[in-house]
């Protein structure tokens, strides 16, 4: 991604943008997980204002893509789920940020 070019030396196009992250709610979830080490479901729900169903739906998509790792444990007798970005997820988010920055900075005034 040096100078906004990919491995083949071509400028990335808008079509190359990671659509999984591009969706606003998933972007919000990814951004929150990017700035912390790990967070539970409730924390993300509070910070993003997403409903439980909405958040779990986006989370399962991110988990399927390998961007989010789900840690399950028990706090006493209650199940507790911690979520964190995988290395792949962090890289994908950084790439997305760089690509969007590159794309938008190239826009004429």
């Amino acid at each position: 991604m040096a100078n906004g070019r990919d491995d083949s030396g071509q400028r990335p196009s808008l079509a190359d943008i990671d659509r999984l992250i591009h969706e606003p709610a998933r972007f919000l979830v990814m951004a929150h997980l990017y700035v912390v080490e790990a967070a539970d479901f409730l924390f993300l729900q509070r910070q993003t204002n997403l409903t439980w169903g909405n958040l779990s739906s986006h989370m399962s998509k991110l988990e399927d893509a390998g961007y989010v790792h789900v840690e399950k444990s028990f706090k006493g007798k209650k199940p507790h789920t911690m979520l964190r970005l995988t290395e792949e997820g962090r890289k994908a988010f950084r790439d997305y940020r760089d690509r969007m920055q590159e794309t938008l900075s190239a826009l004429p005034e």
């Binding site: 479901f41 509070r46 779990s56 998509k61 789900v70 399950k72 789920t81």
Partner: peptide, 23 residues
């Protein structure tokens, strides 16, 4: 920040997540 409904489900398994997301 009121307490959520006491029976708010926690995602227990990948399959449960998928099932809930398709409802």
């Amino acid at each position: 920040y009121p307490l959520g409904p006491p029976n708010t489900p926690e995602p227990c398994s990948q399959r449960q997540l998928r099932v809930r997301s398709t409802v």
